[in-house]
Structure formats: structure tokens, C-alpha cells
């Protein structure tokens, strides 16, 4: 029983050991302790999707999971997606379609988009809109993001 917890996890393919305050959430841990500042904090109550990242292959809200709960897990952040090449096609499509402006929602949006593409989602605009509807973007009209995700699906399946 302790207010700080020892954790061991893998982050972007690297083993990490740390002692963290019990109350520290995963996204703050990644940003503050590991300096992986690509994951953003937008609302801290699980609505905006800016902190969306991947835990054991599933997208999760980084603000609704404690670092302590990540013990033994495999975490992939936007930096990991980029460095490993997993998000290369989406990056290219987002660039071509101008599917980002300020870029603050982008890491979470990419993680959600990748979840959709990897799950075999169709190039169906309504389905894509529904899938990314947990990720708030104040700058674009969402349309370019939908276009970009469609592009990636169509390119990889033809």
C-alpha cells in the first residue's frame, strides 16, 4: 500500500521502469516523466480525445488511465507510431489533404484513425465520422480528416 508505485512497462518498444505517484495519469507520466510530449492533454475528463494513445494495441484515453495501471503494458505514443512507420500512410494522407491545422488534436486523431484502418474499417464516410467522433478538432471542419482516412483505406486495399 503506497502513494507511489513502482511500474515496469514498454513504451514505444523500450523498457521503462519508474516510481510514480499513484494519482499520476498515463498521459502526464508519458509527457512529464518520459518527455514524450506528442500526446496532448485537452480536457482531463475523457471527452476530447487529444490524449488518445495505444495500450496493448487498443486505443485508450491517456487521461483516464493511471500510470500505475499501465504496469506490464505495451504503450505506443504518436512518437512510436511515427518512428516505427505505422502511421506513415496516414501522415502522408493528412499532409496531402491538409487534415490538420494547429495539430493539437492530431496525435489523438491519428491514433483513432489508425485503430479504424487497422481494424479493417471501410472507406465509408459516415462510419469514419462516427469512429472519430470521440476526437475533438476545433480547426478543420473534419472533412479533410475523413478524406485522408478514406484515401489511406482506398490506397492500401487496391
Amino acid at each position: 500500500m503506497s502513494r507511489s508505485i513502482d511500474i515496469k512497462l514498454r513504451v514505444n518498444g523500450e523498457n521503462v521502469s519508474a516510481t510514480v505517484p499513484a494519482r499520476l495519469n498515463l498521459v502526464d507520466f508519458l509527457r512529464e516523466e518520459l518527455c514524450l510530449t506528442g500526446s496532448h492533454v485537452g480536457c482531463e475528463h475523457g471527452v476530447c480525445g487529444a490524449c488518445t494513445l495505444t495500450v496493448d494495441g487498443d486505443t485508450v484515453r491517456g487521461c483516464l488511465m493511471l500510470a500505475a495501471q499501465a504496469n506490464g503494458k505495451e504503450i505506443t505514443t504518436i512518437e512510436g507510431l511515427a518512428d516505427s512507420g505505422q502511421s506513415t500512410a496516414l501522415q502522408a494522407a493528412f499532409t496531402k489533404r491538409n487534415a490538420l491545422q494547429c495539430g493539437f488534436c492530431t496525435p489523438g486523431m491519428l491514433a483513432s484513425a489508425l485503430g479504424y484502418v487497422n481494424a479493417g474499417g471501410a472507406a465509408d464516410r459516415d462510419a469514419i465520422r462516427q469512429h472519430i467522433s470521440g476526437n475533438y478538432c476545433r480547426c478543420t471542419g473534419y472533412q479533410s480528416i475523413v478524406d485522408a482516412i478514406c484515401d489511406v483505406i482506398e490506397e492500401t486495399r487496391t
Binding site: 475523457g46 480525445g49 488518445t52 495500450v55 487498443d58 486505443t59 485508450v60 484515453r61 483516464l64 488511465m65 483513432s112 485503430g115 479504424y116 469512429h131 467522433s133 470521440g134 476526437n135
Partner: peptide
């Protein structure tokens, strides 16, 4: 909710 919430 949404995917990321349903995953947890």
C-alpha cells in the same frame, strides 16, 4: 461513448 472508452 467511443472506441477508446469502450476499450477500457
Amino acid at each position: 461513448a467511443h472506441d477508446a472508452v469502450r476499450n477500457r
